[in-house]
Amino acid sequence: MREIDASAITEAVRTMSMSANYDLGDDVVKAFERGLEQEESPTGKAVFKALLENSKIARNEKVPMCQDTGFAVVFVEIGQDVHVTGGAIREAVNAGVRKGYEEGYLRKSICDPFTRTNTKDNTPAVVFTEVVDGAGLKITFAPKGGGSENMARVTMLTPSGGKEAVADFIVNRCQEAGSNPCPPVIVGACIGGTPELAAMLAKKALIRPLGTKNPDPELAEMEDQLLARINNLGMGPQGLGGRIFALGVHLVKHPCHIATLPLAVNICCHASRHKETEL
């Protein structure tokens, strides 16, 4: 049994709270550069230029790329041969969020759903823990802003609708979302599972590096077709008109019940923030 002290989890989350909000991943920066080349709309080009400049300022000056530094969503993959000592995983994660958001001058955006009273330290984090083989511990920190979260949907389609109904729902969701989720966006979707699992897997699909091909050829083909359909809507960067509304479409599928066809869609703004640490 490998022992890992809970303080190591806290430290990793503290560090990633800041680095995720300051350092946009190279995959996204490269997608902006490609966007700047490919975008036909002058306004859209200006948006890509501004986003490239914004990401440079954030990285160099260690300030958040977006004022909405997000809900702290944390995926923990823990090997079954690991024993965490000195505290519970969830509390260790929350302690890291508390420290990181305070020390990093990050916005605290979490509140009571009815009174709207702010918890003032950006906790609780949303923690998904999965037990896996081995003696590793991987933490993925993926903060996400409220504007794009508001555009997420879960629907239960009729199985007879098949791929066509899935694709139509995703395209319509993008059209209805419009400029709200801060395009250029990444569209995550899970087909199948149960409604709650689909919602989680659609969020997790956003973490796949931009520009990588889906290992499932059927989904890879569907992603290409969806990306073309979504971008042909003409909404473009920031929804101001143009060629590139979405930088990528990330699909996952999961077996579902013979009576159901669940679909969850989660749209991510261009500030697609996620960092990983392996302990």
């Binding site: 958040p64 004022q67 409220g146």
Partner: peptide, 22 residues
């Protein structure tokens, strides 16, 4: 329509982009 992030010491404001208007 904005809710800025906290200002670092010596800064006037933190990051301060627009929020969704609807």
């Amino acid at each position: 329509y904005v809710g800025p992030s906290p200002a670092k010491p010596g800064a006037v404001v933190g990051s301060a982009g627009p929020t969704t208007s609807y």
